[in-house]
Amino acid sequence: MKYKIQPIIIFLGVFSLCVGIWQILQIKTMILPSWFLLLLPVPCILLVSFVLGTLVKKILNSKWRAITFASIFVIIFCSIFYISNFRSVYTVVIPEGYVGEIRLLVSNENDFSINNYGIGYIDRKTFDEGFYPKIIKGGNDITKQVKEYSKGALATSSGDVYSYEYLSFSVLAKGEHVENKDIEELIKIKAIDTSRLYRK
């Protein structure tokens, strides 16, 4: 029985590694492609796991193969990585005809139903910890069309100066450019509900 369990452990190790690779590929980067992030952690995990697996085999004087112990360490490392990088998935719903920048302003609640001016709301915890977006426009999933996300702040200059933090991304056709309204104009036309926002 103890020998029959080895293929199961090895399979779980390979499965854990595949899940870890998939998770790394979901990370959005501003400059380098997501697959570039695989070049360092995956070889390191495999090397360290194999070394530790070999040591444990010798220390225990076990008849199990070193790759079985290495698979156990792969499972441990990938589980730690998955738990530490877990992100909730939220659906961002965009009006069908909207083209331009989407801004999720830091608020006291999550409201991912984007209005006709590209404005939605995200609570402080989700903003700080991050999340995996599922972007729906006109009933179609366009998540893969969005290549990058950024964080920033919008400032007002009337009276006291306030700065509102936000997460943003753009929904544009290839080669298309759209001028976005500034925050004062959006507030003036009541596209932004400032009573819901956190001020820096």
Rank of each mutant, 00 (worst) to 15 (best):
M1H: 11
M1G: 08
K2F: 10
K2L: 13
Y3D: 08
K4R: 13
Q6C: 09
P7A: 10
P7H: 05
G13W: 03
G13N: 07
F15Y: 13
L17Q: 03
I21W: 01
Q23R: 14
I24Y: 01
I24S: 01
L25W: 01
Q26V: 04
I27G: 01
I27F: 13
I27M: 10
K28Y: 11
T29N: 14
L37E: 00
L39S: 09
P43V: 12
I45E: 01
L46P: 00
L46H: 01
L47T: 12
F50R: 13
F50I: 06
F50P: 00
L52C: 12
G53L: 07
L55Y: 08
L55M: 13
V56D: 00
V56I: 14
K58E: 06
S62K: 06
S62P: 00
K63Q: 11
W64T: 07
A66Q: 06
I67K: 11
T68A: 13
T68C: 14
A70R: 03
S71L: 04
S71Y: 03
I72M: 14
I72F: 12
V74G: 02
V74K: 06
I76G: 04
C78K: 03
S79P: 00
F81N: 09
Y82S: 15
I83L: 14
S84Y: 05
N85S: 11
N85Y: 01
N85W: 00
V92L: 07
V93W: 02
V93I: 13
P95I: 12
E96R: 12
E96M: 07
E96D: 11
Y98E: 02
V99T: 12
V99P: 00
G100Y: 03
G100R: 08
E101Y: 02
R103C: 04
L104D: 01
V106E: 04
E109L: 14
F112S: 03
S113P: 00
I114E: 04
N115T: 09
N116K: 15
I119A: 09
G120Q: 09
I122F: 01
I122G: 03
D123Y: 02
D123R: 08
K125R: 11
T126N: 06
D128Y: 06
F131K: 10
P133H: 10
K134T: 12
K134V: 15
I135C: 05
I136D: 05
I136H: 05
I136K: 07
G138Q: 06
G138V: 04
G139I: 05
G139A: 07
N140V: 12
I142F: 02
I142C: 07
K144S: 13
Q145Y: 03
V146E: 02
E148K: 15
E148Q: 11
Y149H: 05
S150E: 11
K151E: 06
K151D: 02
A153N: 09
A155E: 10
A155T: 14
V161S: 12
Y162T: 08
E165W: 08
L167N: 02
F169S: 05
S170E: 14
V171T: 04
L172E: 03
L172K: 09
K174G: 00
G175E: 04
V178R: 13
E179T: 15
N180L: 08
I183N: 02
E184N: 14
E185G: 12
K190Q: 12
I192M: 05
D193F: 07
L197Y: 04
R199E: 11
K200S: 11
